[in-house]
Lab assay of single mutants.
Amino acid sequence: VSVELPAPSSWKKLFYPNKVGSVKKTEVVFVAPTGEEISNRKQLEQYLKSHPGNPAIAEFDWTTSG
């Protein structure tokens, strides 16, 4: 189950709350306009370098507050 949070234009930000008793931590995933899922800052940096014209990296908020 995921919750969609505010994201930069043409992107989606999905929040996957951890299940009770789960060892997996809460996860935030950005979905690029191409449909590619980005789950960490390093991936995001690589994606933005190879896909010019996207929002600046500073516009991506990895917190769950939206």
Score class of each variant (00 low, 15 high):
residue 1 V to F: 11
residue 1 V to K: 08
residue 1 V to A: 11
residue 1 V to H: 13
residue 2 S to R: 11
residue 2 S to Q: 09
residue 2 S to K: 09
residue 2 S to Y: 15
residue 2 S to N: 08
residue 3 V to H: 09
residue 3 V to G: 06
residue 3 V to P: 05
residue 4 E to L: 10
residue 4 E to M: 10
residue 4 E to H: 08
residue 4 E to W: 08
residue 4 E to Y: 08
residue 4 E to R: 07
residue 5 L to P: 04
residue 5 L to Y: 11
residue 5 L to N: 05
residue 5 L to M: 12
residue 5 L to V: 06
residue 5 L to C: 08
residue 5 L to I: 05
residue 5 L to Q: 07
residue 6 P to M: 07
residue 6 P to H: 08
residue 6 P to V: 07
residue 6 P to W: 08
residue 7 A to Q: 05
residue 7 A to V: 05
residue 7 A to G: 06
residue 7 A to N: 04
residue 7 A to H: 05
residue 7 A to K: 04
residue 8 P to C: 06
residue 8 P to F: 05
residue 8 P to E: 05
residue 8 P to K: 06
residue 9 S to R: 11
residue 9 S to I: 11
residue 9 S to M: 12
residue 9 S to L: 14
residue 10 S to G: 15
residue 10 S to M: 13
residue 10 S to N: 15
residue 10 S to I: 05
residue 11 W to Y: 01
residue 11 W to H: 02
residue 11 W to T: 02
residue 11 W to P: 02
residue 11 W to V: 02
residue 11 W to C: 03
residue 11 W to G: 01
residue 11 W to F: 03
residue 12 K to H: 08
residue 12 K to F: 05
residue 12 K to V: 09
residue 12 K to N: 05
residue 12 K to E: 04
residue 12 K to W: 04
residue 12 K to D: 03
residue 12 K to Y: 06
residue 13 K to Q: 03
residue 13 K to C: 06
residue 13 K to M: 03
residue 13 K to N: 01
residue 13 K to A: 03
residue 14 L to F: 14
residue 14 L to H: 07
residue 14 L to M: 09
residue 14 L to P: 01
residue 14 L to G: 02
residue 14 L to Q: 05
residue 14 L to T: 04
residue 15 F to H: 08
residue 15 F to P: 02
residue 15 F to G: 05
residue 15 F to D: 02
residue 15 F to Y: 14
residue 15 F to C: 10
residue 15 F to Q: 06
residue 15 F to N: 05
residue 16 Y to C: 06
residue 16 Y to D: 01
residue 16 Y to G: 04
residue 16 Y to I: 10
residue 16 Y to R: 13
residue 16 Y to S: 06
residue 16 Y to Q: 06
residue 16 Y to H: 06
residue 16 Y to K: 09
residue 17 P to H: 11
residue 17 P to Y: 14
residue 17 P to W: 14
residue 17 P to R: 09
residue 18 N to S: 10
residue 18 N to T: 10
residue 18 N to Q: 12
residue 18 N to G: 13
residue 18 N to D: 10
residue 18 N to V: 11
residue 18 N to P: 10
residue 18 N to I: 10
residue 18 N to C: 13
residue 19 K to G: 14
residue 19 K to T: 11
residue 19 K to W: 13
residue 19 K to N: 12
residue 19 K to Y: 12
residue 19 K to S: 11
residue 19 K to P: 13
residue 19 K to L: 14
residue 20 V to R: 07
residue 20 V to I: 12
residue 20 V to F: 09
residue 20 V to A: 12
residue 20 V to M: 10
residue 21 G to F: 03
residue 21 G to A: 08
residue 21 G to L: 08
residue 21 G to H: 09
residue 21 G to N: 11
residue 21 G to W: 03
residue 21 G to D: 11
residue 21 G to M: 07
residue 22 S to C: 10
residue 22 S to M: 08
residue 22 S to V: 07
residue 22 S to N: 11
residue 22 S to P: 11
residue 22 S to E: 13
residue 23 V to M: 12
residue 23 V to K: 07
residue 23 V to R: 03
residue 23 V to G: 15
residue 23 V to A: 14
residue 23 V to Y: 11
residue 23 V to L: 14
residue 24 K to Y: 13
residue 24 K to V: 15
residue 24 K to D: 15
residue 24 K to W: 15
residue 24 K to G: 15
residue 24 K to P: 15
residue 24 K to F: 14
residue 24 K to I: 15
residue 25 K to P: 13
residue 25 K to L: 13
residue 25 K to F: 14
residue 25 K to M: 08
residue 25 K to C: 13
residue 25 K to H: 15
residue 25 K to R: 11
residue 26 T to L: 10
residue 26 T to M: 12
residue 26 T to P: 15
residue 26 T to Y: 15
residue 26 T to I: 11
residue 26 T to F: 15
residue 26 T to R: 12
residue 26 T to C: 15
residue 27 E to G: 15
residue 27 E to D: 10
residue 27 E to Y: 15
residue 27 E to Q: 14
residue 27 E to V: 15
residue 27 E to T: 14
residue 27 E to H: 14
residue 27 E to N: 12
residue 28 V to D: 00
residue 28 V to R: 00
residue 28 V to N: 01
residue 28 V to M: 05
residue 28 V to S: 02
residue 29 V to A: 06
residue 29 V to K: 07
residue 29 V to F: 07
residue 29 V to M: 07
residue 29 V to N: 03
residue 30 F to V: 00
residue 30 F to A: 00
residue 30 F to L: 04
residue 30 F to P: 00
residue 30 F to T: 00
residue 30 F to G: 00
residue 30 F to Y: 07
residue 30 F to C: 02
residue 30 F to M: 02
residue 31 V to L: 11
residue 31 V to G: 01
residue 31 V to F: 08
residue 31 V to W: 05
residue 32 A to I: 01
residue 32 A to Q: 00
residue 32 A to W: 01
residue 32 A to M: 00
residue 33 P to N: 02
residue 33 P to C: 03
residue 33 P to H: 02
residue 34 T to C: 04
residue 34 T to I: 01
residue 34 T to Y: 01
residue 34 T to L: 02
residue 34 T to G: 05
residue 34 T to D: 09
residue 34 T to K: 01
residue 34 T to Q: 02
residue 35 G to Q: 03
residue 35 G to I: 00
residue 35 G to C: 04
residue 35 G to V: 00
residue 35 G to Y: 02
residue 35 G to H: 03
residue 35 G to N: 03
residue 35 G to R: 03
residue 36 E to M: 05
residue 36 E to T: 06
residue 36 E to I: 05
residue 37 E to V: 15
residue 37 E to Q: 13
residue 37 E to P: 08
residue 37 E to H: 15
residue 37 E to R: 15
residue 38 I to M: 05
residue 38 I to G: 00
residue 38 I to F: 08
residue 38 I to R: 00
residue 38 I to Q: 00
residue 38 I to S: 00
residue 38 I to N: 00
residue 39 S to Y: 13
residue 39 S to P: 07
residue 39 S to C: 12
residue 39 S to D: 09
residue 39 S to N: 10
residue 39 S to H: 11
residue 39 S to R: 15
residue 40 N to W: 03
residue 40 N to L: 04
residue 40 N to I: 03
residue 41 R to C: 10
residue 41 R to A: 12
residue 41 R to F: 12
residue 41 R to S: 10
residue 41 R to T: 09
residue 41 R to W: 10
residue 41 R to K: 13
residue 41 R to Q: 11
residue 41 R to Y: 11
residue 41 R to N: 09
residue 41 R to P: 12
residue 41 R to D: 09
residue 42 K to Y: 13
residue 42 K to I: 13
residue 42 K to P: 10
residue 42 K to F: 12
residue 42 K to M: 12
residue 42 K to C: 14
residue 42 K to T: 13
residue 42 K to L: 13
residue 43 Q to P: 01
residue 43 Q to K: 06
residue 43 Q to G: 07
residue 43 Q to T: 09
residue 43 Q to N: 06
residue 43 Q to Y: 06
residue 43 Q to W: 05
residue 43 Q to M: 13
residue 43 Q to A: 10
residue 44 L to I: 02
residue 44 L to A: 00
residue 44 L to V: 01
residue 44 L to F: 01
residue 44 L to P: 00
residue 44 L to M: 07
residue 44 L to D: 00
residue 44 L to T: 00
residue 44 L to Y: 02
residue 45 E to A: 11
residue 45 E to G: 07
residue 45 E to K: 12
residue 45 E to W: 11
residue 45 E to C: 08
residue 46 Q to G: 09
residue 46 Q to S: 11
residue 46 Q to T: 11
residue 46 Q to M: 11
residue 46 Q to K: 13
residue 46 Q to D: 14
residue 46 Q to H: 10
residue 47 Y to H: 03
residue 47 Y to V: 00
residue 47 Y to F: 06
residue 47 Y to G: 00
residue 47 Y to E: 00
residue 47 Y to W: 05
residue 48 L to K: 01
residue 48 L to Y: 02
residue 48 L to H: 01
residue 48 L to M: 04
residue 48 L to G: 00
residue 48 L to S: 01
residue 48 L to C: 02
residue 49 K to E: 14
residue 49 K to V: 10
residue 49 K to M: 13
residue 49 K to P: 01
residue 49 K to N: 14
residue 49 K to W: 10
residue 49 K to F: 15
residue 50 S to K: 10
residue 50 S to A: 13
residue 50 S to G: 09
residue 50 S to R: 10
residue 50 S to F: 09
residue 50 S to Q: 11
residue 51 H to T: 03
residue 51 H to G: 01
residue 51 H to Y: 06
residue 51 H to W: 04
residue 51 H to M: 03
residue 51 H to D: 02
residue 51 H to L: 01
residue 51 H to Q: 03
residue 51 H to F: 06
residue 51 H to P: 00
residue 52 P to R: 04
residue 52 P to G: 05
residue 52 P to Q: 05
residue 52 P to H: 06
residue 52 P to M: 05
residue 52 P to T: 07
residue 52 P to V: 05
residue 52 P to C: 04
residue 53 G to H: 06
residue 53 G to I: 04
residue 53 G to P: 03
residue 53 G to E: 06
residue 53 G to Q: 06
residue 54 N to P: 06
residue 54 N to C: 05
residue 54 N to Q: 11
residue 54 N to D: 03
residue 54 N to I: 02
residue 55 P to S: 03
residue 55 P to T: 04
residue 55 P to C: 03
residue 55 P to Q: 04
residue 55 P to F: 05
residue 55 P to I: 06
residue 55 P to N: 03
residue 56 A to P: 15
residue 56 A to W: 04
residue 57 I to A: 09
residue 57 I to M: 12
residue 58 A to M: 09
residue 58 A to R: 10
residue 58 A to C: 10
residue 58 A to K: 09
residue 58 A to P: 05
residue 59 E to M: 08
residue 59 E to Q: 08
residue 59 E to T: 06
residue 59 E to W: 05
residue 59 E to L: 08
residue 59 E to K: 04
residue 59 E to Y: 06
residue 60 F to S: 01
residue 60 F to Y: 03
residue 60 F to G: 01
residue 60 F to W: 02
residue 61 D to G: 04
residue 61 D to W: 05
residue 61 D to S: 07
residue 61 D to F: 04
residue 61 D to L: 05
residue 61 D to Y: 05
residue 61 D to C: 06
residue 62 W to P: 01
residue 62 W to M: 02
residue 62 W to H: 01
residue 62 W to N: 02
residue 62 W to I: 01
residue 62 W to R: 01
residue 62 W to G: 01
residue 62 W to F: 08
residue 63 T to G: 12
residue 63 T to K: 07
residue 63 T to W: 05
residue 63 T to L: 06
residue 63 T to S: 14
residue 64 T to S: 11
residue 64 T to F: 10
residue 64 T to C: 09
residue 64 T to W: 12
residue 64 T to H: 13
residue 64 T to I: 12
residue 65 S to T: 13
residue 65 S to G: 13
residue 65 S to A: 12
residue 65 S to E: 12
residue 65 S to D: 13
residue 65 S to L: 10
residue 65 S to K: 12
residue 65 S to N: 12
residue 65 S to M: 13
residue 66 G to W: 08
residue 66 G to Y: 09
residue 66 G to N: 12
residue 66 G to H: 10
residue 66 G to C: 13
residue 66 G to P: 12
residue 66 G to M: 09
residue 66 G to F: 10
residue 66 G to S: 11
